[in-house]
């Protein structure tokens, strides 16, 4: 199963084994990871599952839909070119090893 590394704002990291077909957000919340709130449960409505994707991985992710782009303008922490909503990234085998950074805050 593909694994994902979450890097916390303090530099510590967590490696999470994922289940097939779930989103990066679901993998994080299933492991009780701090730093992803996901208040809307993955419906692309709350922007509290914000992550910064490691630059080397950015191009390999599925493209962003319009509603994700608009929501990212409202994130609590600053929006960067690497910002994504983790509930909108479905994990596929080719994303094994994905690295994402967690923002300072989600609300």
């Amino acid at each position: 199963m593909p694994a994902i590394t979450f890097i916390h704002p303090d530099g510590k990291s967590d490696r999470v084994e994922t289940a097939g077909g779930e989103s990066v957000m679901q993998a994080a919340t299933r492991h009780g990871l701090d730093g992803i709130l996901a208040e809307c449960g993955g419906n692309a409505m709350c922007a509290t599952c914000h992550v910064y994707v490691d630059e080397s991985w950015l191009a390999r992710l599925p493209a962003m839909a319009g509603d994700e782009d608009a929501l990212l303008d409202g994130t609590a922490a600053e929006r960067r070119p690497t910002s994504r909503l983790s509930c909108q990234i479905t994990i596929t085998p080719d994303l094994d090893g994905l690295v994402v950074k967690l923002p300072e805050r989600q609300v």
């Binding site: 919340t29 709130l37 996901a38 208040e39 809307c40 449960g41 419906n43 409505m45």
Partner: peptide, 16 residues
């Protein structure tokens, strides 16, 4: 996360 007090899916509360 995941509770359905605001619903879920396309009609999930737009005023949440």
């Amino acid at each position: 996360s995941g509770h359905v007090g605001f619903g879920s899916g396309i009609h999930m509360c737009v005023g949440q």
